[in-house]
Amino acid sequence: MSVFIIRRLMQSALVVVIMSFIVFSGVFLVGDPVEILVSDDADQEEREMMIKSMGLDKPFLVQYGIFISKAIRGDLGDSFVFQEPALLLILDRMPATMELAVVALLIAIVFGIPLGVWAGLKPESLASKSIMTGSILGFSLPTFWVGIMMILLFAVVLGWLPSTGRGDVQIILGMPISVFSWDGFSHVLMPAVNLALFKLSMVIRLARAGTREVMHQDYIKFARAKGLKEQRIILVHVLKNILIPVVTVLGLEFGGLVAFSVVTETVFAWPGMGKLLIDSIGLLDRPIIVAYLMIIVFLFVLINLLVDICYSILDPRVRLQDIKS
């Protein structure tokens, strides 16, 4: 196990280094931040000074070298706009995004698995067919449109939920969290549901497909032949088997949930790092874009590792060990 983790950590470090190069050169190609940041009436000398202060006068590879040597020491550069360390700016907004993503993930699991198992057990019933049709909508409707429609319905017409912002936050374990107060919860509910819809549909489909497959296995029939109650067969024998693909996919998708909360955060004006990214792209604030992408890369790598470990707990056939090549 420990050998496996060490090896995976080394692979992960390599992935992070390669991604840093791709991200850095990608951002370098897009636009000239000086054009946006410098005031219109600045003369050539002021422009030169600005370029120099941002380090943009040096050749690309030298800039990259400086970036890497600082990054190793935990400094991903200062924001052009805020004049503050980019990493701190992002980390400052990370709890909001994480909270949104975790709530969305919980919604997807808590509703997706039971609905999917139900649809898998009774594939011919009207309820199951409605669930499956609903999941197609969840897959195909664009997030931003659903978000706007939700605001229209629940905030404007019915007036049940607030349309924007984060509401009350409490400091829990040093992080600002909003779900534990009613005001905060009412703010997080709509964006979280919006973000969860796609994953919810996916969980439903995975759980349904898994259930239908597992129900026909001999070991389910054997479990029946043992005289087990139906609820034990479903809650233990079926559920544990279908959790394997669900955990794998959800784990991998959690990174996506964080990365693509950009759209939801924009629609609901949720003060998370996705919204910061969109603002920074508009201003060509390179350090923030780079830092954001590096954090996302890091997150994906970390999640993959965690999924592998989870997987081995659920499926005894996959015990992580040093595989001799």
Binding site: A223, G227, H237, P316
Partner: peptide, 25 residues
């Protein structure tokens, strides 16, 4: 039938590789 199965009447299946649930001890 559930009461009888496994207590009074039990069954052994053909393929031993498939009759035990792979994820349970």
């Amino acid at each position: 039938m559930r009461e009888l199965r496994g207590v009074n009447i039990s069954m052994i299946f053909q393929d031993p590789m498939m009759t035990l649930n792979p994820v349970l001890r």
